[in-house]
Design a protein around this nucleic acid. Structure first.
Lengths: 246, 246
DNA sequence: AGGCGCTTGTGAAGGCGTGCACAAATCGCG
DNA sequence: CGCGATTTGTGCACGCCTTCACAAGCGCCT
C-alpha cells in the first residue's frame, strides 16, 4: 500500500531506512519542487498548499500531491505542507545532505563555465577536482582548483570520495573518459558530449545536449510556421516515393 | 515537459499533410538520430539498418523504426535506410535547413560558454546577437560579435530575423528577459536559468537545469548506496519494505 | 463541542509510449 | 524466373504516467 516511515527522521539518524522506489518521472521533478521550496522559505513562508507549490514549480497540483505522497504523508489536510520539513525530506531522498564530491573532466569552453557555475555548490555539490588531457591546460588554476592530468583521475576519485563525474570533453574523447571514470569507481556520469556512452550495468548516465534542445525548439518553430502559412508546400529536395496507390 | 501545446487538428487536409504531428517523444529523439546519421555519413556508409542506427543512437531498434515510420516510408525492406536521404528528411522536419537565427541573453559564466559552443553552428543554428543588462559587458567583443544592451533586443530580433532566444541570465532576471523576448516576437525560448517562466500560449519554452541533472544522479547514488548497505541478501525482488533494523 | 470550510491523499480512468512479434516487401543468387 | 535471406513497417498488448474527482482528515470559529 504505502510506505510509512515514522520515527527515523533524517535529521536525527544517519541510518539508511528503506528506500521507497519512486517513479522515475517523480524523481525528475523533485529537484524542481526543492528549488521552489527554497524560494518559499526565503520569503518566510512556513507552509504551502499543493496548489501554491505546484504553481511555483510549474506543474499540476494533482501531480504534485501524488509525487509527494510517494515519499510519505508530510502534509496536513486543511493546512498544506510544512516548507522546512519538506525541504529536509526531499534533500534527504535526493541524497543532497551529503554534499557529494564531483569530478569535472574537460576544462574547455563548457568546462570552464561548469567549473564556475555556482548553482552546483548552492545545491548540494562540491566540484573537487578538474581534469584535462591537454598538457597545456594541466596545472592552470581555475576557480580555486588546479587542473590535473586525467591520468590522476583514479587516485583523486579515491582520495576525494568522488561518486559523480561530469564529462565536458569533445565527443571523440568522451567514451575513453567514461571508461576511466568507471574504472576509477565512479558510478554516475553526467555527459555533455554529443555522443552515446557505453557503460557497464550499475552505472548511471545522464546526458545533456545543448544543441538537441535547440533542435526541438526548431521543430516547433517549423511547425508553427507551416500552420500559419498556406499548407501544401513541401518537399525538402528528394520527394519521390509516395506510399499511396499502386 | 514544460511547454503547453494547443493541438488543433485541422480537418481540412487536402493533400499530403505537410506536417505529420509527431509524438513528442519521437521529436526529442530525432536530433539524436540525426547526429548518428551524420557520423555514419562521415564514415562513408550509404545505407544503414534500423539495428545499426539504433545502436549508434543508443535506442531500441523497434522504437527507431516506429519513430521513422511516423515521418513516412524512407526505408527499403531488406536493405535499410538511405543515410543521405534520411538526413535530409530529418533536417527538413526539424527545420534545420533554415539555419535559424538565435539570440543569446546573458553573457556571464554560462553565456560565454554558449556563445563559443561550436555545436550550435555545426548543427543548424547561428547565434547572431548577444545581449546583457550589465553596462560593463555591453560593447565587449565575444566570439566575433559585440555584446549589446538588452534594450536593443526588439530591434535586433526584427533585423536579424531571430526566432529563438536563449536565456543564460541569473534566475532573478530571467522572467523579465523572457517578457522582452516575447514582446520582440520570439516564439521559442531555451531557458538555462533555474526558474519557471511564464509565457503566453503559442510560445514554446524548454528548460535546461544543470543542477537538476546532478540531483537526479545523486538520488540514484543514494539509492545504490542504500541497497549495498543492506547486509545479507541483495535481491531486488525479496526486498520489499521496512528493512530498518534498530 | 460541533459544524464548516479547506486541503491532502488516493482510487479509477484514460492516454501515451514502449517493445514484441510477424506479415509484407525487397534484393541477390542460382 | 523463382526462392530464400533480410529488413522494414505495424498491429497489439502491456505498463507507466497523468488527470479527474472525491472521501478522509484537520483546524478554526461559533
Amino acid at each position: 500500500m504505502s510506505q510509512q516511515r515514522q520515527g527515523s527522521t533524517p535529521a536525527t539518524t544517519g541510518a539508511v531506512p528503506a528506500f521507497p522506489d519512486l517513479p522515475e518521472a517523480t524523481i525528475a521533478r523533485l529537484p524542481e519542487y526543492l528549488r521552489a521550496l527554497h524560494n518559499l522559505a526565503e520569503t518566510g513562508s512556513e507552509t504551502v498548499s499543493s496548489e501554491g507549490l505546484a504553481a511555483a514549480a510549474g506543474v499540476n497540483s494533482a501531480k504534485l500531491r501524488k509525487d509527494l505522497s510517494h515519499l510519505g504523508s508530510y502534509g496536513t489536510r486543511g493546512v498544506g505542507y510544512d516548507v522546512a520539513l519538506l525541504i529536509d525530506q526531499i534533500e534527504y531522498i535526493l541524497g543532497l545532505d551529503q554534499r557529494r564530491a564531483v569530478a569535472l573532466v574537460g576544462v574547455g569552453n563548457l568546462g570552464h563555465a561548469l567549473a564556475g557555475y555556482d548553482g552546483f555548490a548552492s545545491r548540494g555539490f562540491r566540484i573537487v577536482a578538474l581534469f584535462d588531457a591537454d598538457a597545456e591546460q594541466v596545472g592552470k588554476p581555475l576557480n580555486g582548483l588546479t587542473v590535473r592530468h586525467i591520468d590522476e583521475l583514479g587516485q583523486a576519485v579515491v582520495e576525494e570520495g568522488i561518486t559523480i563525474g561530469v564529462i565536458a570533453t569533445p565527443a571523440g574523447a568522451a567514451q575513453a573518459v567514461a571508461d576511466d571514470l568507471v574504472a576509477a569507481g565512479v558510478t554516475s556520469i553526467l555527459n555533455f558530449a554529443p555522443c552515446v556512452l557505453s557503460v557497464p550495468a550499475g552505472v548511471d548516465v545522464r546526458k545533456v545536449d545543448l544543441a538537441i534542445e535547440l533542435q526541438i525548439l526548431s521543430f516547433h518553430e517549423h511547425r508553427k510556421a507551416s500552420l500559419t502559412a498556406i499548407p501544401g508546400g513541401r518537399s525538402p529536395e528528394a520527394g519521390n516515393q509516395e506510399a499511396v496507390g499502386s
